[in-house]
Design a binder for these strands. Structure first.
Lengths: 135, 135
DNA sequence: AGGGCTATTGTTAGCTC
DNA sequence: CGAGCTAACAATAGCCC
């Protein structure tokens, strides 16, 4: 085929900021890549990884955690919530904790219930990424 | 030079376990790569990432955290580890033993199906992964 | 264990629909 | 915006010293 439609990744002068949409897409992609790598580490080396990502702009707490460290994660959030000196993060955490009961659909609620039951399985990795709407 | 000494990365049949040394080296390398990518995410997108890694066998907790999340991390470890031993800079904190069940429930299959359907929900993205080996 | 090397694999930025 | 595609590009497994 002679004419190629999609030219693929082009050379890029690294400093220049892309447009907002590309930035968001890239962020999501790279974060997915991070989680993928974490997952690989868990699987290949039997590690346990707990990741919290605070994205910018009030919305979007992204959490990756191995089932066996879920108690750690829960304790982490519980510990952090009442602390006054981390207000900037509290809203993220609150948003995350209340997300299942306020903003998300009923389908998601049932889904979370299922996930909650399966959390102690020990054999699965669950990765939940809540999208930031406009970031 | 005709004969090449270092053949570079060879094709590898993915299942085969390398020797212990290679495994350890690879783990360190990949973990460093994970932290590198996390750092890149922090820099490029102004995110805040907090990672806890429990490596296998009681030794080695490796922690990566963005500076702005440092209070969270410190508090987390104080909360999580009553033992006073955060001696090294972030690294090597005694890991806690987490037994956990290991059998894979058959409900996982239906769960996966549900998750698969929910993937296109648009509000949330969920990924589930099973462990490769029997842990 | 610690570097260096290299090829193969994996990631991802930008594009197009 | 999501999804797919593609090429630049980065990660890394295996080997050697």
């Amino acid at each position: 085929m002679t004419t190629r439609i999609n030219k693929g990744r082009q050379r890029v002068d690294m400093v220049k900021m892309k447009n907002a949409r590309n930035l968001q897409v890239t962020f999501s992609t790279r974060l997915a890549g991070l989680f993928k790598k974490s997952n690989e580490l868990c699987m290949l080396f039997n590690a346990e990884i707990f990741i919290v990502v605070f994205s910018q702009g009030d919305k979007g707490v992204l959490c990756f955690d191995h089932p066996s460290v879920n108690p750690l994660a829960e304790g982490f959030f519980e510990w952090n919530l009442p602390q006054p000196h981390i207000n900037v993060h509290n809203q993220h955490i609150v948003a995350r904790k209340e997300g299942g009961t306020r903003d998300l659909s009923t389908k998601l609620m049932s889904l979370e219930a299922i996930l909650e039951k399966e959390k102690n399985c020990g054999q699965i990795l669950i990765e939940i990424r809540k999208r930031a709407n406009s970031l």
